[in-house]
Nucleic acid binder design. Structure first.
Length: 668
DNA sequence: CGTCAGCGGGTTTTT
DNA sequence: CCCGCTGACG
């Protein structure tokens, strides 16, 4: 055992948390208190002491990043070999693993498609259109989409669900019902159902649950404050036998209520033992005092107070600019000054904001900023924005994946509709309408309607349309053959050529530059799927399984065939939302746009309430290690119009003596 | 069947 | 202001 892996390096609370391994344990870990350290040490301790074998430990996280970080640290503590045997993954990939093995008990086949939020959105739009066929106007769908996504995270997965009586209106209920029916008919599973179906499987097939219960005698869950009711059920099922469940989290950092997380899960965790970690190793006391002062205004929380051995620290810098443009400029100025005077590098600095739209002005200011490096003048502060579109979500990538989805699972109607006329091959709206009406009325899968139509032209289509359908069908069977016999990389290459994918990009995108970019993405896709294939053990993975693996793991992002690592190692200033900053830390943070209606966000106030907004503010403050600057503007463009803005009410909760209020345009 | 203008709507987002 | 979708036209 090396020095750093010894329990002696932990503080008494941390040590207790790592050593208490039996029964139900709740670890309340404040921001920056060494939560991940404790979790990994606890696992290492389980193994070292011989209490558990690595393969008997299951660690569930919310993000791939967290899982990867734990994995990395586990390898250090236990060595590659043993750490690999611990199951460390996200809830979603865990469920994917379970379903991949046993989904046939639920009426799906192993070739099921995985739908992401985009697919679901499209599907809901379609369903609503059908449902409202005779209405003259379509209502806005966002309330429906929101309500449905929330309900599903509560575990409403069929009509018999216990929580099925909380729908606001009949329409939403109907849409939801059809959504579930469609998914089933398409042999498709989405992110929410991944979890729901696993619970369903465990309830219907106790012997399968038994298998997992016997295998995973020790269960640990990270960021427990973010669990939704379905995840709660999952945890309950899995830990039911041995009852060794350790959950780690911080009620003060629960900021995902709007997508179904229940703070109550952590507040009411029924436990044998509670351990609080309150010593923070990240920030100065000044910063922590500000954070403590803000969060203590929340009623719904467990009492906690962070403290740090890092004494003193500089006051929080506050300034109030006339407009959002001035604010952005002032931030750029201060960033350069701060970097100079404190000898920081760009990557030590982050600019955080409540909503993405606030990044625009900042970007412009950073681009414009000129600064001096030694005796040279340099234009522009290097920066990096997080939260853009994921690679696999880009249209062209999803289009190719849609082809693969249909090849593997022709019932995947969502994907089929996506590609049936892409690139344009003369299967237009009218033809499609006729096909889908049969599909809707008789409930016959679109794929079958298509095949029948080709055989005996029941719909009496024109020759031209009929030809187009035939050609499409031939194309798909040719492709199927190819994929069954050839290797993945070659088959995909062939497919792109054969369907003339270049043309579809040409049709969809106007600018030459954008086209080049999209085509690059396509080429990257080919190489990514090739790499993926090379890394598989072919003997163990027949062709159709590896294609399925690829299509399901890619949206879940765990095996990162192409996702560029979201690392902050580059020499750039980081720009991101408060939400995506959770879990990260920076020497210097700039929180911008601290105005009422932005934080607390007025819409959010109505939906999730002020306490969640306050927690968000708390998360933002606790990202800073040494220097924290708070800013706002007196006037800000809102939906194109200049509007007056007031400082956030949360600012007034920070004791004055911690603040240094400065002139907006004259940095210290 | 395909294109383009005009209209409505705009918090956070990982999996 | 900026985006995406709808629906009217060529």
């Amino acid at each position: 055992m090396t020095n750093s892996s010894s329990l002696n390096t932990l503080n008494p609370e941390q040590r207790k948390a790592a050593e208490t391994v039996q029964g139900r344990v709740l670890i309340l870990a404040g921001a920056g208190c060494g939560k991940t350290l404790v979790l990994t040490m606890r696992m290492a301790h389980l193994v070292h002491s011989g209490i558990a074998k690595p393969e008997e430990i299951l660690g569930l996280t919310f993000t791939n990043k967290a899982a990867a970080e734990m994995r990395r640290r586990m390898a250090k503590l236990l060595g590659e070999e043993r750490s690999k045997k611990i199951t460390l993954c996200t809830f979603h990939s865990f469920c994917l693993m379970v379903l991949r093995k046993d989904i046939q008990h639920l009426g799906y086949t192993k070739h099921f498609s995985l739908y992401d939020a985009h697919d679901i959105h499209r599907l809901i739009t379609q369903i609503s259109r059908t449902l409202l066929e005779h209405e003259s106007v379509m209502p806005s769908l966002s309330p429906t989409i929101n309500a449905i996504s929330k309900a599903r995270s509560q575990g409403v997965f069929d009509e018999n669900s216990p929580v099925n009586d909380q729908w606001h209106d009949q329409f939403t209920k109907d849409v939801h019902k059809r959504l579930q029916d469609s998914l089933r008919a398409y042999n498709a599973v989405d992110f929410d159902n991944l979890l729901c179906l696993t619970v369903e499987l465990f309830m219907k097939k106790p012997h399968i649950l038994d298998e997992y219960q016997n295998r995973f005698r020790y269960l640990m869950i990270d960021e427990y404050q973010d669990t939704n009711p379905v995840q709660y059920q999952l945890a309950a099922h899995l830990s039911n036998k041995h009852n060794n469940l350790c959950v780690v989290g911080d009620d003060d950092q629960s900021i995902y209520g709007w997508r179904g997380a229940e703070v109550r899960n952590i507040l009411e965790f029924d436990k044998a033992c509670v351990i609080k970690l309150q010593q923070n190793y990240r920030s100065t006391n000044t910063i922590l005092n500000a954070a403590n002062a803000v969060i203590k205004n929340n009623k719904m929380r467990r009492d906690k107070e962070l403290w740090s051995a890092i004494e003193g620290g500089e006051s929080l810098e506050v300034f109030h600019a006339p407009t959002e443009i001035d604010e952005a400029q002032a931030v750029a100025d201060r960033i350069v000054k701060l970097k100079e005077s404190k000898n920081l590098s760009w990557k030590d600095i982050a600019i955080l904001y409540r909503s993405n739209s606030l990044s625009r002005q900042i970007e412009m200011a950073l681009l414009k900023k000129t600064w001096k490096n030694g005796d040279r003048w340099i234009q522009g502060v290097p920066y990096q924005i997080f939260g853009g579109e994921e690679y696999y979500e880009r249209r062209e990538v999803k289009d190719i994946m849609a082809y693969l989805r249909v090849i593997l699972n022709p019932f995947d109607q969502e994907a089929l509709l996506r590609i049936i006329n892409l690139p344009r091959r003369g299967i237009g709206e009218e033809t499609l309408d006729k096909l889908t009406s049969l599909n809707r009325q008789e409930g016959i899968p679109l794929w079958q309607v298509l095949q029948r139509q080709i055989l005996n032209n029941t719909l009496e289509l024109t020759d031209r349309s009929q030809k187009a359908l035939e050609q499409f069908s031939n194309l798909m069977s040719e492709a199927k053959q190819k994929f069954e016999n050839g290797n993945l990389r070659e088959s995909v290459k062939w497919l792109i050529e054969r369907v003339d994918f270049k043309r579809s990009i040409h049709e969809e995108v106007k600018s030459e530059k954008m086209r080049a970019f999209k085509w690059e993405n396509v080429e990257e896709f080919v190489s990514a799927i090739g790499d993926y294939e090379d890394n598989l053990h072919k003997e163990l993975r027949p062709q159709d399984i590896s294609l399925h693996d690829f299509l399901t793991t890619t949206p879940l992002g765990q095996d990162k065939p192409f996702r560029q690592e979201k690392n902050i190692q580059e020499e750039k200033v980081t720009l991101m939302t408060f939400h995506s900053a959770k879990g990260l830390e920076f020497k210097a943070c700039f929180l911008i746009g601290l105005e009422d209606h932005i934080i607390p966000h007025e819409k959010s106030l109505k939906e999730t309430g002020i306490e969640e907004e306050r927690r968000l503010m708390y998360v933002a403050i606790t990202r800073a290690k040494r220097y924290l600057t708070l800013s706002m503007a007196k006037q800000r463009k809102r939906v194109g119009k200049d509007m007056p803005s007031r400082p956030s009410r949360f600012l007034f909760e920070i004791p004055k003596e911690l603040l240094h209020i400065s002139q907006w345009n004259c940095p210290p």
